[in-house]
Design a protein around this nucleic acid. Structure first.
Lengths: 201, 201
DNA sequence: GTCTATAATCAGATAGAC
DNA sequence: GTCTATCTGATTATAGAC
């Protein structure tokens, strides 16, 4: 077992520079473009440093994912705890960059087992957090919702935000404005007009 | 311009054998696994034949996509013309292999312009066909649907089927049975129990 | 921490014989 | 149509000098 090899410390500056470069590359050109050489080039570093900080490329990809996911969990929690929770959750869910990255990782998961498990783990975390908060919120709005329980709503709106984000990046547009307006109508009805700009990123 | 090179005829047997192999590979291991060598190996042929029948790998990928898309358009048209059109459309939309391939191509489209345009073109075709048929169908069922117009329904259900298919392949399951049951409840209410097995593929 | 150098694979694509 | 052979370039990863 060759794990005696050296590894850079987790809080080194260049480490996060490489993570940034990998994430950006993934966003713009897809996971297939994330090679050690291209990541390093974008970060202005030598490609060997990638292997110094991350033993394998899978390790790098996993760290990019985890960093995003942890930040996302916090953002989602803050949204759910805000005074317009549904609107805030929707705004978070429709974040373009976040959704595109999620889809890219989902594609990656199709053929890399190590990554698949981690993605599934976090995805369930996201959904569980939503399901813990939603019933209380909907109750407060007087939605007993026998027809469409919270868990269905969650899956439905996840799908909607994903498909719109995905289609936007490809160049498909039919029905998007109508679908977004439909959501907005319901948000408006439940929580009124948007009160604050929650773009604190 | 070196386009003087030879190319195999479009209806040769080995050509479709290669298309089959590429599609299968894409389904099982993702588009990144579709290399000339791996496709050929799976087809029991030499990798040079890939370049004989398809000048470039993009050409191969595009042909895989077009073949699937054309078949899909026919299947969707047949579904929309059946006596339980909504149920048939839903069954078609939730076809696991079809959805996974669609997502794989969508990922591919993120970083290959030539493929992106073709995918967008076909996606709009699919949606347009749905939008031509849906209003009549919903009218017949007495759904004036001021709240949720057909185009919104289309986008919403596309998103739902995609997210469920994607999450199933990764191993996420929370909310799936509930969401599918929710759709089934509405289908049941509008079109009653499933009449025929429409699995003629 | 960062470098040079290198090993071992795999990729796409073409030329030309048969 | 299918083959052998080959060119060219990219990839991951490691060893070891500085």
């Amino acid at each position: 077992m060759p794990s005696a090899r050296r590894l850079g410390s987790p809080d080194a500056k260049n480490r996060s520079v490489l993570l940034d470069a990998a994430e950006q590359l993934m966003l713009e050109e897809g996971y297939a473009a994330v090679s050690a050489r291209r990541v390093a080039a974008r970060a202005g570093l030598k490609h060997q440093l990638v292997h110094y900080y991350f033993r394998t490329m899978d390790d790098l990809l996993l760290d990019v994912f985890r960093r995003r996911a942890e930040e996302g969990l916090e953002r989602q929690a803050k949204a759910l705890a805000s005074d317009q929770p549904l609107r805030a959750l929707w705004e978070y869910s429709t974040d373009r960059a976040g959704t595109v990255l999620t889809m890219e990782f989902a594609g990656l998961a199709n053929h890399r087992k190590a990554i698949r498990a981690e993605i599934a783990r976090y995805a369930e975390k996201f959904r569980a957090a939503q399901l813990e908060a939603l019933p209380g919120i909907l109750d407060r709005y007087g939605l007993c919702s026998d027809d469409c329980p919270p868990v269905v709503m969650t899956v439905l709106l996840t799908g909607l935000s994903r498909v719109v984000a995905m289609e936007q990046t490809i160049g498909i547009s039919t029905g998007h404005t109508e679908a977004l307006a439909w959501v907005e109508r319901h948000l408006q009805q439940l929580e009124g007009d948007p009160k604050s700009r929650t773009d604190d990123r």
